[in-house]
Deep mutational scan, measured.
Amino acid sequence: ASVAVIAAGTQGNIFATSALRSMRFLQILRMVRMDRRGGTWKLLGSVVYAHSKELITAWYIGFLVLIFASFLVYLAEKDANSDFSSYADSLWWGTITLTTIGYGDKTPHTWLGRVLAAGFALLGISFFALPAGILGSGFALKVQEQHRQKHFEKRRMPAANLIQAAWRLYSTDMSRAYLTATWYYYDSILPSFRELALLFEHVQRARNGGLRPLEVRRAPVPDGAPSRYPPVATCHRPGSTSFCPGESSRMGIKDRIRMGSSQRRTGPSKQHLAPPTMPTSPSSEQVGEATSPTKVQKSWSFNDRTRFRASLRLKPRTSAEDAPSEEVAEEKSYQCELTVDDIMPAVKTVIRSIRILKFLVAKRKFKETLRPYDVKDVIEQYSAGHLDMLGRIKSLQTRVDQIVGRGPGDRKAREKGDKGPSDAEVVDEISMMGRVVKVEKQVQSIEHKLDLLLGFYSRCLRSGTSASLGAVQVPLFDPDITSDYHSPVDHEDISVSAQTLSISRSVSTNMD
């Protein structure tokens, strides 16, 4: 405001104040949320940038038409019409005319000016109207692209899951042992070998009828009888010197917790746990005396209480009078009846079946994303299906024409109403129809010849004498029936064969 007042002088105070007050009108834009329509302006900018070359070309040609039209109309009207006294007036008329506004304040009066105005109007309006069409088509394409992008975003994750499931299904095939990355992934998420051994031990116990592997080994086996189970490696608790092959000598807290839970599941009659010990102070733990958990001091820290809870689970003690015997301790020893080589084939089979199920689920979810969402998608899918159906029908028609023997030239002739090819031409065609016709002709010829021969033979049998045999009239074959199959017997006289037959029969009768 200060700059405006200084620039306008003393009389500019009122002007500056009114100008600043008129800017209050811009507050109405906040009512229509114009300040939060950044996406709309961004869309407009992207459309203009995408079609910038077309817009520049249309505007450039339109500007050239405007300059030439205004100049030529000015030359034609400057002497006869006072409205075109300057080139600026003519340029104003050209702008209003070519933009199809047409105020009518300035019009050419001479015939030359009117002809020039009409010609440049028809030429220039087309170029001035091009930017509107370019922007409209650009907006339509952009909206369609955003629509497809939205659908693509919805299909991206199911497609990625389907590709991942397909690759993992491919890589978990037993015949592709060189693909090891997927197996490394499952090695990292699978439970430890100790848990798998416990699982298979329970399965084997159920197969043995509820007997433990130790009891199965204690059962008497006759001499020479084959053992029911192959000899396997035996594993004891981590306190002993022997372990399962492939295990580490260090046992983690999870393994100890699972070991304690498995020992508690063996039965309360074979294992008696004394009350857990509780320390009397955060600094020292008295293991010899058993106290109640309700006497825990409230001033303990979080670490002390955590250690106390761990001691409740991981440090059970047995009383002296209830101490288990050596046999019970041997039964409680952890027996590992299986090795990694025995378990891994079954584990890989389970993983393979899981990968198949996940692949089928991913495939079903991806197919669900291909379903249409709204009416536009339904129409688009219907149009695509219609085009596909037309293509299939056209391909089927082409194959039928190839089989029947109607080529493209014959199809055009039928469409024009011309006469089709004759039967002889159809026979000569190298097509399925021509071959079928040729075979039918040959079969008819053979059938006719057989009928003639059978009739001749029956007449010979009825006559009974050589004289009557020679008097029999043998009809000749019709050459038209034989089609294109020409037998060497067709052109010979059958009477010669009949005479030869009669001579042979007379000779045979004389010999008798």
Rank of each mutant, 00 (worst) to 15 (best):
A166S: 13
R168L: 02
S175R: 09
A181D: 11
T182A: 05
W183G: 11
Y186S: 06
I189F: 10
F193I: 11
H202N: 12
V203G: 11
R205W: 06
G209R: 07
L214V: 07
L214M: 06
P222H: 10
D223H: 09
D223V: 12
G224E: 12
R228P: 04
Y229F: 11
H236R: 13
R237P: 09
S240R: 12
T241P: 08
S248T: 04
M251T: 12
D255Y: 14
R258C: 03
M259V: 04
M259L: 06
G260C: 13
R264P: 14
G267V: 12
M278I: 14
S281F: 05
P282T: 12
E285Q: 10
Q286L: 04
V287M: 06
A290T: 15
T294S: 05
N303D: 15
D304E: 15
R305C: 14
R305L: 15
R307L: 11
R309L: 07
K315E: 09
A320S: 15
E321G: 15
D322A: 14
S325T: 12
S325P: 04
K332Q: 11
Y334F: 08
Y334C: 11
E337V: 13
V340L: 09
D342Y: 05
I343N: 13
K348M: 05
I351V: 09
L357H: 12
L360P: 02
K363T: 14
F366V: 15
V375G: 11
D377H: 03
V378G: 14
S383L: 14
R392Q: 01
R392W: 01
L396P: 01
G405C: 02
G407E: 03
G407V: 11
G409E: 03
D410Y: 15
D410A: 14
E415Q: 10
D418H: 15
P421S: 13
A424V: 14
E429D: 13
V439L: 11
Q444L: 08
S445A: 12
E447A: 13
K449T: 03
L453V: 09
S458A: 09
R459G: 09
R462C: 04
T465I: 07
A467S: 04
L469M: 14
Q473K: 07
P475S: 15
P475L: 03
P479H: 09
D480Y: 08
D480G: 13
D484V: 03
Y485F: 04
Y485N: 07
P488T: 03
E492Q: 06
S495T: 06
L501R: 08
L501V: 10
R505G: 05
T509A: 07
M511I: 14
